[in-house]
């Protein structure tokens, strides 16, 4: 989730939009998002990665412009895609120029969207390319795909509800590729050699990971102290 907002908010504010028709659209989306100075939200986070067994957890998410973000999970431990936040954020902040290109149209969740490709002009940028699927009539980003140099490709799919006016999603599904996970039994001190049942073994072969956050409650523009994000 945190990735999403940063990518969208920051990317939109800092990119110089060169493809004319797309610049206007991206600017409008940015303006809509700019209404939100800060928010906090409650939600449920679900982690679906083949080698992770995690229950659905309650999370609280805090955001403050321009780029302060914090995710607090009840119980304290969350498993998140690597670099999902920091890499995207920092690279986008420090790079100033992006090229926004129209790349056709698509239907996401029954909404017609414009596909916009954002390319950083800076060679050093961690982000290689970002593709946004923008729902033009509602000015909402329905889907975003970001390819990074180090951490692979992430896909975010958003659906909106009560806070669509602020451009805040009700549900974000974050998809990414995972690699193998294996630790020697000697380290984990497992003696038994019972192979996992077939169905589970099959499940573990699924190399696509998903993190899903469903928001239930937004508190927008009520002010959050900077120190909170430390």
């Amino acid at each position: 989730m945190r990735s999403f907002l940063f990518i969208v908010a920051l990317l939109i504010s800092y990119s110089s939009i060169q493809a004319q028709d797309m610049t206007a659209l991206v600017t409008k989306v940015k303006a809509k998002l700019d209404q939100v100075n800060d928010y906090e939200a409650e939600g449920n986070m679900k982690t679906d990665v083949s080698f992770i067994k995690a229950p659905i957890g309650k999370v609280k998410v805090y955001f403050k412009k321009p780029n302060k973000f914090r995710l607090k999970k009840e119980g304290g431990i969350s498993l998140l895609p690597k670099g999902g936040v920091s890499v995207n954020m920092s690279t986008i902040i420090t790079t100033s120029d992006f090229v926004a290109l129209a790349a056709g149209e698509a239907v996401i969740d029954g909404f017609k969207t414009k596909i916009v490709k954002l390319l950083p002009s800076n060679e050093a940028s961690e982000i290689v390319i970002t593709t946004l699927y923008i729902d033009e009539p509602n000015l909402l980003v329905r889907k975003a795909i970001t390819t990074t140099k180090e951490n692979g490709t992430y896909e975010m799919q958003m659906s909106y509800g009560a806070y669509a006016n602020y451009g805040l999603p009700q549900k974000v599904v974050f998809s990414f590729n995972t690699k193998d996970y294996k630790l020697p039994k000697g380290i984990t001190l497992e003696f038994d050699d019972n192979e996992k049942p077939l169905s589970e073994a099959q499940k573990l072969k699924n190399k696509k990971g998903r993190v899903e956050i469903t928001y239930s409650n937004y508190v927008v523009n009520k002010g959050i102290a900077d120190s909170f994000f430390k």
Partner: peptide, 13 residues
């Protein structure tokens, strides 16, 4: 807090 465990072929939260 939550308990995070690394097993040989998966992790458990």
């Amino acid at each position: 807090g939550d308990m995070f465990l690394m097993k040989s072929s998966y992790v458990v939260l």
